[in-house]
Computed example of a mutant assay.
Amino acid sequence: MTIDVMLPYYGDVAMMKAAVESILAQDDRDFRLTIVDDGYPDESLPAYFASLTDRDDRVRYLRNEVNLGANGNYRKCLGLIEHDYTVIMGADDIMLPNYIGTIRKGFRNPDVDIVQPGVEVIDEDGVVYEPLGDKVKDFLRRRLVGESTEAVVAGEPVAKSLITGDWLYFPSVAWRSTAIKQHSFREQYNVVQDLALAMDIIMEGGRLMVSDTVCFQYRRHRESDSSVRALDGRRFAEERAFFDECVRDFKKLGWDDAANAARLHISSRLHAVTLAPKVVQKRMWPGLRKLAAHVVRL
């Protein structure tokens, strides 16, 4: 059961190299690594990628002729999937040596479409830490699955939990390839595209396995693209559009509790509240107005 590891890349070179090395250092070596370079401008990269493909025949490298952006590059990766299970890893994250083996174990259950393994959060320097938002993620996940070391969840309960607060760590998530290719990423989203994909699979009866086995390090940047989008209000505008879609979709399925959770989007509003001091500090007054509108939205 070979696992496709897709690595859409654009950004810090050193972090990308660390991500690649962590993949190649897996204890379970039955995987295929495909790197899709979105045209990052660094003259050292052609030689580096050539050395990778020369040294390991499990590595495939492609470079986009034009920059597709994150969402476009994700969708291109889907068209390159060749095996039954897929990971779309972040180019600044780290796989611990037991990652592939943990994912493989999760998919031994033939009913599982998504596997979320245990994750550590690291900062720009690779130091493990736990920001407030990640403590909330852990609380929401445990409220759904309890103290189980492995749990399979489906239907309205997991939809309601995720829409209350998204506790998935997208780069660490593994997907059944038929499910992810069937639904793909919604083109209109640049921040919540991963949650939208998971929700599409869940609404069609897909099952999510949650494992406590820590096997992945997710890098959280203090000034990431999503955090910048949050400060100027773009992130929350996108989230509101997604929540509105979910209200309609959940109502069609008769998932009234999940629809109410989408309508309230409590954790998203609280996130906006926590960002207000930073927006004031940076004097981003248009962003502050947008945050305030998101918080009080009825």
Rank of each mutant, 00 (worst) to 15 (best):
V210G: 08
D232L: 09
G11V: 05
W167V: 10
D54H: 14
P286Q: 06
E187A: 01
D194H: 00
F250R: 01
A196E: 13
V191E: 06
Y85S: 00
K278G: 02
F49N: 08
A14Y: 00
V5Y: 15
A174T: 03
T86R: 10
T53G: 07
L264P: 00
S224A: 02
F236Y: 15
V273W: 12
Y129I: 01
A230R: 09
V145T: 14
I163R: 00
N98K: 06
V210F: 15
H271W: 15
S161G: 08
Y48F: 14
T178W: 05
R248Y: 10
S267V: 07
N64S: 11
R143M: 14
L270A: 12
A25W: 04
A261W: 09
D244F: 06
V36T: 06
C246P: 02
V127C: 08
N71V: 03
R60H: 15
D113K: 01
D84M: 04
T86V: 14
L168C: 07
E187M: 00
E204S: 08
P46D: 11
A154G: 08
L168E: 09
E204Y: 03
R75Y: 01
V87H: 08
M16G: 10
G106H: 07
L132C: 01
F185D: 02
G79H: 11
G72C: 02
D249A: 09
V112T: 04
D256P: 00
A47K: 07
L270Y: 14
L291V: 06
E223R: 11
G79E: 14
R234D: 14
R263W: 14
V115H: 07
A151S: 12
Y99A: 00
L78F: 11
M1R: 04
L288P: 06
V115F: 06
S224D: 04
R58Q: 13
M15C: 04
D27L: 09
D134W: 06
E238F: 02
P46N: 11
R141S: 11
V112P: 04
K290T: 08
E130W: 10
I180E: 08
F185C: 01
M209Q: 15
G79Y: 05
M1A: 08
V153T: 09
F216Q: 13
K160R: 15
A47G: 04
V192N: 12
K135A: 03
M95T: 05
P117T: 09
A241D: 11
L144A: 03
A154L: 08
G233M: 12
V152M: 09
T102G: 05
V121P: 05
V214M: 10
N190Y: 11
A47M: 05
H221P: 00
Y40L: 10
D93C: 15
L162M: 05
I35R: 04
L140M: 13
G106Y: 10
L291K: 03
E156I: 02
K278W: 05
V247T: 09
D28N: 12
L78V: 05
H83D: 13
L62K: 10
I23M: 15
S211D: 15
C215L: 07
E43I: 09
E147W: 12
S172V: 10
D37N: 13
R60A: 14
L140W: 14
E43V: 11
D38K: 01
P277M: 01
P97K: 00
A159S: 11
G155Y: 12
A196V: 05
G69P: 07
N73P: 03
E43G: 08
V191K: 01
A293N: 14
R141L: 11
Q193T: 00
K137E: 13
R235I: 00
K252W: 01
D92V: 03
Y218H: 15
K76V: 06
P8H: 04
